[in-house]
Amino acid sequence: MRELSLHILDIAQNSIEAGANTVEITVDEDESSDLLTIRVADDGCGIPEEILKHITDPFATSRRTRRVGLGIPLFSEAARVAGGDLEIQSGSGQGTEIKATFKISNIDRAPLGDMAETMALLIVCNPHVDFKYEHSRGKTRFRCSTGMLAKILGGMSIGSPSAVPVIRNVIREGLKHVQMT
């Protein structure tokens, strides 16, 4: 994947397929510790223990189940080559939380990419899921959620194609004040 925002889209698709009602996506750029942290947490069906054990191994997991494929191993590798790591906490019926860290200054760290595009498409194409997105850098922070964006849209359906550019712009403007990577 060229951008970390594509990994986020991919991991969030797992959450959706796991039947999540709420998906929290947080991005934290902490320059003082040179760490970029990406967290995706959902309240979906979770991952059974026996699959979780091998989850970052592409060969052990890819054929066992369709829901868990190459996405997590690729995200894990992207973190590892950038001097970071990937942690995953889950269990049957417990939801899933994935946290990946990256050294911001590492030359092999992929760019964060277009978070506004990733979030706008996730929100509009999955209107039944409540997304919460938080992006912080130092003391600056941008937050939005499906509920908050629905209010901005007024009577326009959050699932309407016309909602994509509106949401994309809201997020893009908001991120201008926080984003660096």
Partner: peptide, 21 residues
């Protein structure tokens, strides 16, 4: 899926939504 996204599905989906809008 992962393969779709890696191949550019986000841009494809975005173009579809834009064309519909």
């Amino acid at each position: 899926g992962t393969c779709g996204i890696a191949a550019g599905a986000r841009e494809t989906l975005s173009a579809i939504m834009d064309e519909l809008a």
